[in-house]
Design a protein around this nucleic acid. Structure first.
Lengths: 206, 206
DNA sequence: TTTTGTGAACCAATTCACAGCA
DNA sequence: TGCTGTGAATTGGTTCACAAAA
């Protein structure tokens, strides 16, 4: 863990751990080679080996890497699922409330601890496995619950303002579902996952 | 100008055009400097200037870049909004159907031309401004409509199979809302926008 | 054998630093 | 003066190629 892991390598490792878990749950393989990972991901085998070597562990034989050991190593180094991390959803329109049933959360180390919406009516009508609050209580609830990450799913026109409030609360990162380019403090990171953004990336690569 | 634009540069330019449009619609600025763009995005002014110079146009004065000209230039070079591009939504659960009301589409050059779901019941009950079909008709409709991109919002267990069918149809790109690591043909690109993926990127960057 | 792990080489991207321009 | 545009330098990432290990 001496060498710090670059962003592209980290992102590949995040995907890799998920790929390995999928393999583990649908196939009987216990071991996988870098060549096989290349087939399934498109990354070159050299890149795969380099990424894995950055973990600073040694879980390979001449048949390849032990899948179980590799999963553990990546999780440990990237502190994925090291401890439960609390998130909140900001904006409970169709998109925000669709997340209430997103399967992926079950197997992750992220836990949704609160939902916020400016419409009190909506926070009262919706039912969720976690408490819903009016946006006015955002700062208080985030501090009190120790929420670290926010999922931003408000209408475009409210996105920047919401982001600023989240920054002031000391939120570590925002997952941005809107296509607004957010201006945030240095202490806060943003991951953009707007569908328009993604489509434009695809079509500009064409 | 024959220098091809790198992927990171393209992705910044896509964000930049959106930022500029936002500035244009909320402020009265007609001109913007690379230093100002740095403030709003966090990219260094050198990177901003380099990216813009890759466009091979010249829309700057000593006061900065003309916002309107810059928007046009980026759109032209990245063929954003050059022509209307057809997409489909595959999987009309809560997440997929939430996209029906996503605002961003209105101002984009992407048009949703079809929705697919394995539940015939669902395709009959939902109402959308475009036709909905059972998944069995996917291949036929995609070919007939000339659909180029797909938004994948099916349950995790069906994701890989759906992706393979989309590849066979010759779809150019898939926007993947699931957290499954998709294996696709060389001719098909994937953009992953799973919320879990995004949260893990944020927390591993810590 | 086969496959990893890794220096060294290569290629890509960013940043520096400054000439040139309005 | 205050900006852009861009060669040159630098930093970062990927790939090569091969020794070492199983």
């Amino acid at each position: 863990m001496k060498k710090s892991i670059s962003k592209p390598a980290r992102e590949r490792l995040i995907q890799l751990v998920r790929l390995l878990e999928q393999v583990q749950s649908t196939e009987t393989l216990a071991v996988i080679t870098s060549a096989e990972i290349e087939k399934r991901t498109g990354w070159t085998n050299a890149t795969v080996r380099r990424d894995i070597s950055l973990l600073g562990i040694n879980c390979a034989s001449s048949a390849g890497y032990s899948i179980a050991a590799l999963i553990e190593a990546i999780k440990a180094v990237l502190n994925i699922s090291r401890s439960e991390k609390k998130c909140c959803i900001v904006g409970l329109g169709r998109l925000g409330s669709a997340l209430l049933e997103f399967e992926g959360f079950a197997h992750s180390s992220f836990k949704i601890a609160a939902g916020f919406d400016s419409s009190v009516n909506r926070t009262e009508i919706l039912s969720a496995p976690f408490p819903l609050y009016p946006t006015s209580r955002m700062e208080a609830v985030i501090a009190q619950e120790g929420i670290e990450y926010a999922i931003l799913a408000v209408p475009e026109r409210s996105a920047q303002e919401a982001a600023e409030r989240l920054c002031k609360c000391g939120i570590k990162g925002i997952v941005n579902y809107t296509s607004v380019v957010l201006r945030v403090n240095d202490g806060t990171m943003v991951e953009n996952i707007s569908v328009i953004d993604a489509l434009q990336k695809l079509s500009s690569a064409g």
